[in-house]
Computed example of a mutant assay.
Amino acid sequence: MARRNDHTHEQIRQLALARLGEHLSNGPLANMSLRKLAQAIGYSPATLINVFGSYDQLLLSANADTLDQLAARLIEQQPQQATPQQQLLSFAETYLQFARQHRYRWQLLFEHRLPDEEAVPDWQQQRINRLFAVIESALAQLAPTQTAQQLQLAARTIWASVHGICALALDDKLFASSDIRVENMIASLIRHYVSDWQQQ
């Protein structure tokens, strides 16, 4: 077991998040615990609680890393000179790819819940808002007269729909024939929703 002064708090933080990330590359959070994680990096559970505040906050920090990775992927894979609808389709396809490639990280992002008495920290909410801003920006180009509230509603509707398709696809519960591709379902969703939304 490492001594308390072997690493700084920030180094312990990075060690824990890196080890948790390695675990989530191969299996679900259910196979990990605070005790196992602490043991894996050579510290006590109490040390991790001292660094993060709680196991929930540790998981929230891992989710922040996931949101950062997803945001970076969205920027990297955005096609050059794309139309707003192409941007939305790229967002949805990138989201699907990320969910497939990082299944357990992606699941943790939505399965983890803070205790009822704890609010989502500003630093996490800012990351969430940044992702929605990508969708809202594309929608604003399609319908410049829409209000901010209408853009927020449409962005969240699109995301929730894409997320639902991704979740069912990963769990193999779409109950669709093998010739119906998930990507085609997402493209159909974006095309028809956006077309209808623009006419409102």
Rank of each mutant, 00 (worst) to 15 (best):
I135P: 09
R156N: 13
H102V: 02
A62H: 11
C166Q: 01
L131W: 06
F175Q: 08
A92L: 05
P45M: 10
L74F: 13
L142Y: 08
A99L: 07
D116L: 13
P144H: 13
T83L: 14
L58G: 07
Q126S: 12
I41T: 06
L168T: 01
A119T: 14
S137E: 15
L67P: 02
Q107E: 12
W159H: 10
F175A: 08
L96V: 07
P121D: 15
R127K: 07
Q81G: 05
I49G: 05
I75T: 08
L151F: 11
Q86S: 13
D122W: 13
L48I: 06
D65W: 01
P115M: 06
Q126T: 10
T47L: 01
S137G: 12
Q80F: 02
E117L: 09
P115F: 03
E136Q: 15
L48N: 02
I165C: 08
Q97T: 09
Q87F: 01
W106P: 03
T66N: 08
P45G: 04
G42W: 08
R105C: 06
A138G: 04
F52W: 03
D116C: 04
D65H: 08
D56T: 00
R73P: 02
D116N: 13
Y104K: 05
Q80Y: 07
E76K: 15
E111A: 02
P115I: 02
S61T: 14
H112S: 13
W159L: 10
V134Q: 11
A169K: 00
Q107P: 05
A160T: 11
I41P: 13
Q126W: 05
A140N: 06
Q85T: 15
L153F: 05
T83S: 15
R103S: 12
T47Y: 00
W159S: 06
E117M: 09
I75A: 09
L58Q: 04
A140H: 14
A167D: 12
D56V: 03
Y95F: 14
G164F: 02
W159M: 09
Q39T: 10
Q78P: 03
L89M: 15
Q150Y: 01
D122P: 09
F110K: 03
A160R: 07
E117Y: 12
A40N: 12
G42A: 15
S137Y: 12
Q125T: 07
A160N: 10
T145R: 09
W123A: 13
Q141K: 14
H112K: 13
L74R: 08
L151K: 15
P115K: 04
Q78A: 12
P79S: 12
L151C: 06
P115R: 05
R130N: 09
K173T: 00
A82M: 01
W106R: 06
Y43W: 08
A40W: 11
L108S: 01
A148G: 00
L139T: 04
L142H: 09
Q125S: 09
R156W: 01
R113K: 15
A160V: 06
L67T: 00
D65C: 03
A138E: 10
Q150H: 10
Q150T: 07
Q150F: 01
F110S: 09
N129C: 02
Q124C: 13
Q149K: 14
L108K: 11
F132R: 10
F110L: 09
A133W: 08
L170S: 02
G164Y: 01
K173L: 03
D116G: 11
I128C: 03
F110N: 10
A119F: 08
T47I: 05
